[in-house]
């Protein structure tokens, strides 16, 4: 493990009231589904990992997918504005597997583990500060938007701390801007998810490319109406309904190719949207398993769990996530991930 104390500090910084050390410290509430992935015909040109090869297209690669709400609390608040997660495990031949861990935020909050710890400590939920009428009028007169009122029943939130911190740290601004207006999807399958970090893929011709992955929902992106009262529990039911009676939902796996001059090791910044983009394959979801605890809540994903043909970049946040995920997995006694040597 790279820095045992830093890993532990990060996990503890993410622990908040309403969470549980027996659950994930963030993305605590979720639902899992099964499905399969089929690569596009051109995928192997860019990446020779097993799940992108033509033979994978014949019957598809079996996958487990866990969708989640970003908050680290065990209560469900599906309708609150929040980042969502989508972790995918691809089951390869010979008992091997690989993960792709993504979220609805296109950027990460900090460029290094140390700065992330700083951010996490400053953005810990604090009692909601409801703006008074005069404070709101003052904001309007300053051509600013007041912070939204708390949701019914919401007593704490990270907004105030995150915005104050980002106002002093430029690197946190893109993520905080996006997170503060991200809203709630009408369904887990109606959001775009980004793997955020840069990975290095090796193509059929041996060429290595620095890339970023995103899942684009074929059903399209759609959020709930923020003016209507938020529902606390609808996302799991929605997924069960969508995948009942043999119905399926799909995502396209898009891969953006970085260029010389792009920062491959800083996940706080998006690359320009006009980088070359390749459609790498299609993920089909077909079933919500009944035993969620065994198959998804104990399952330990890890963004460092890669396979031949895909390598990690030198992004230091990606590197420490390997140990943070392993630590968290051990602490909640999850099914060990490949890096679970760390004791929680």
């Amino acid at each position: 493990m790279e820095n045992k104390h830093l890993v532990k500090d990060i996990v503890h910084a993410l622990d908040i009231d309403g969470g549980s050390t027996e659950r994930r410290p963030v993305h605590t509430v979720g639902v899992g589904a099964t499905g399969f992935f089929k690569p596009s015909p051109m995928a192997q040109r860019f990446c020779v990992a097993e799940h992108f090869l033509p033979k994978a297209a014949k019957k598809g690669v079996r996958v487990d997918i866990r969708f989640s709400n970003g908050m680290g609390v065990v209560e469900e608040h599906d309708g609150w504005s929040d980042v969502r997660g989508m972790a995918v495990r691809f089951y390869l031949e010979n008992g091997q597997s690989t993960d792709l861990v993504s979220m609805t935020l296109p950027v990460f909050f900090a460029p290094t583990p140390e700065t992330f710890l700083d951010f996490a400590l400053n953005a810990r939920p604090k009692p909601c500060q409801r703006a008074t009428p005069w404070q709101k009028i003052k904001s309007y007169l300053q051509l600013q938007l007041p912070l939204p009122d708390p949701y019914p029943g919401q007593t704490e939130r990270p907004n105030e701390g995150a915005i104050a911190f980002a106002s002093k740290h430029v690197w946190a601004q893109p993520a905080v801007i996006d997170a503060s207006s991200i809203g709630a999807p009408v369904s887990y399958v109606r959001a775009t998810y980004h793997a955020v970090h840069t990975f290095i893929v090796t193509g059929k011709d041996g060429q290595r490319r620095w890339v970023r992955f995103s899942w684009a929902p074929i059903a399209g992106v759609l959020n709930t109406d923020p003016k209507k009262p938020p529902e606390d529990r609808y996302l799991k039911k929605d997924l069960e309904k969508r995948l009942s009676h043999g119905r399926t939902e799909r995502f396209s796996l898009m891969m953006q190719i970085g260029e010389a001059g792009d920062d491959f090791n800083d996940s706080t910044r998006q690359w320009p949207p006009h980088r070359t983009r390749v459609m790498m394959g299609t993920l089909t979801l077909n079933k919500v398993r009944e035993d969620q605890q065994e198959y998804f809540e104990k399952l330990s994903f890890n963004p460092w769990h890669l396979t031949d043909g895909i390598d990690p970049s030198d992004d230091p946040v990606l590197r420490i996530r390997k140990d943070v995920y392993a630590f968290s997995s051990n602490r909640r006694q999850g099914t060990p991930c490949p890096f679970s040597g760390t004791k929680g």
């Binding site: 904001s139 600013q144 106002s167 740290h169």
Partner: peptide, 8 residues
Amino acid sequence: PHDLQTLP
């Protein structure tokens, strides 16, 4: 850095 709330 700019105060984020001044973006609007």
